[in-house]
Amino acid sequence: MSAYAIHTAESVSVDGPEKAAEAASIVGLPAVLKAVGPGLLHKSDVGGVRLGLRTPEQVGQAYREMATRLGPAMTGAIVQTMAGEGVEMIIGGVAHETFGPLIMVGLGGVATELLADRAFRVPPIDKAEAARMIAELRCAPLLYGYRGRPAADVAALEEQIVRVGRLMDDLPDIAELDLNPVIVTPDGAVAVDCRVRLAPASPLPSPFRRRLR
């Protein structure tokens, strides 16, 4: 992510309550604690996310409680800077069998799969095309100050989409990529959860790729 200047929340991986408390001083407070484990894909569904922890002691105690509740399923945790309040979006990518890399933007957070409000493109794209993707979404009004809320930094979201497109286009071994959620605030857009699945690529013949673009 950092190699492509994709803005992500500062995070530290930890494996115990004492290290979690120390990490809180590194990333800054308030902090977020997220459980890590091979089977913990939807962490919030099982109580694997704690928000708004305001002291290192609270972070350490949250780790202990989370580890007790989740048991062996929790192999560690991530301590992360708490993002500001904003609109939760998702930016993703997939290596499609026919089209090659595809990028996606849509409504993020826990409603992603339920509402399936998404737009797709074949990269590379520019910011104008990213803006058109966002305009296709039913949730787009949320980004522009819906019902008196402050308008989000849509330009920052567009830039994130463009950069994810470049990443997917450059790295064919990425089979799937999810940034969910990307919190879009009046001051920027930051990904607070990132998942990547790698697989050996079978690149399309270059003439076919050129036709798609």
Rank of each mutant, 00 (worst) to 15 (best):
L29E: 10
P30R: 13
A31W: 13
A31P: 08
A31R: 10
V32R: 06
V32W: 09
K34C: 09
K34S: 07
A35M: 11
A35F: 09
V36C: 10
P38M: 14
G39A: 07
L40D: 06
L40T: 05
L40S: 05
L40V: 04
L41H: 14
H42I: 05
K43E: 15
S44Q: 06
S44G: 10
S44C: 12
V46A: 08
G48S: 02
V49R: 07
V49E: 03
R50Y: 08
L51Y: 10
L51N: 13
L53W: 09
L53A: 13
E57Y: 04
E57R: 09
Q58D: 15
Q58P: 10
V59Q: 04
V59R: 04
G60E: 08
G60L: 10
G60A: 08
Q61C: 00
Q61G: 00
Q61A: 00
Q61V: 03
A62G: 02
R64N: 01
R64T: 06
R64P: 00
R64S: 02
E65T: 06
M66T: 00
A67F: 02
A67M: 02
T68G: 01
T68F: 03
T68I: 07
R69N: 02
R69W: 00
R69M: 05
L70D: 04
G71H: 13
G71C: 12
G71W: 11
P72A: 03
P72R: 05
M74P: 05
M74R: 04
T75H: 04
A77E: 01
A77C: 00
I78D: 03
V79P: 13
V79T: 10
V79K: 09
Q80A: 11
T81S: 15
M82A: 15
A83C: 12
A83V: 14
E85K: 14
V87K: 04
V87N: 03
M89P: 09
M89W: 08
M89L: 12
I91D: 01
G92W: 06
G92A: 07
G93E: 00
G93Y: 01
V94D: 01
H96P: 07
H96K: 09
H96D: 15
E97F: 05
E97K: 11
T98Y: 11
T98V: 15
F99V: 03
F99E: 06
F99K: 04
F99W: 09
